[in-house]
Design a protein around this nucleic acid. Sequence first.
DNA 1: TATCCGTGGAG
DNA 2: TCTCCAAGGAT
Length: 297
Amino acid sequence: MDAISAAPAPLLHSTVLDWYEANARDLPWRTPEASPWAVMVSEFMLQQTPVKRVLPAYAAWLERWPAPADLAADAPGEAVRMWGRLGYPRRALRLHAAAVAITAHHGGRVPDDHAALLALPGVGEYTAAAVASFAFRQRHVVLDTNVRRVFARAVTGVEYPAQATTAAERRTATELLPASVETAATWAVGVMELGALVCTARSPECGACPLARHCAWRVAGRPPYQGPPRRGQSYEGTDRQVRGKLLAVLRDAHGTVPQASLDAVWPEPVQRARALDGLVADGLVEPVGPGVYRLPG
DNA sequence: TATCCGTGGAG
DNA sequence: TCTCCAAGGAT
């Protein structure tokens, strides 16, 4: 029973690569036909939204906007409407803005350069690495919640990673990233898939894990999480809930919406007004006159 | 860096 | 029922 840090890296690599080849889900953004744009759309949608709910939205989105220029030519409000109930609708706005930037500055093609990707709206450290890695097969450290959890357990021996990504985590991920460009991208998606399917947050299936022999957490007897309480996401009664209700009215209506329709979704006027102001400030809602609103045109 | 930003499903 | 959490990003 050696910890993962003591195991030869090539062994870990082949273990994960073999496991991935045999167990990878058949997801549309992983097919050879998936364009870089398709990969990028999937990454935006997958930010905090489960795969199962992304699948139908992803298909509808790409059917309507097969290329960045197609989306860029449409109104941002249409992106917000198509986003539907995926949650965090600012992502829809940012994806539209990214499409505009790609059309204006990159000839309508998703850039393959990591820095150029990172400069796009809605593209952060994870998404830039993911698109560069998965769409262009480059070698990058891809640190998402799945990878962080796998490394927390296998390498550090704790049940959950820290709240924010640490320098130590980046160091670990960098050291474990295969030197070979040919295998780095598959390693990245393989570790992610392992976290998504086996090394899950709630009930990890160590019996089915290819890394079980090397996992520091399992070797230590799967000690329970001891760190500070991981604050839950309260939702009931928050501005987020009100914003969601308001935006749902705008989405489902085509054209403009009168104030009265918005007032009906939440009884408390101060919070309601604050939520609506926030939506307008974010560019998700556009006032078109006194007491009249619509999705941004 | 802590907080804000939606929605729905699993246990 | 209720808590947790799901391929994060921006500020």
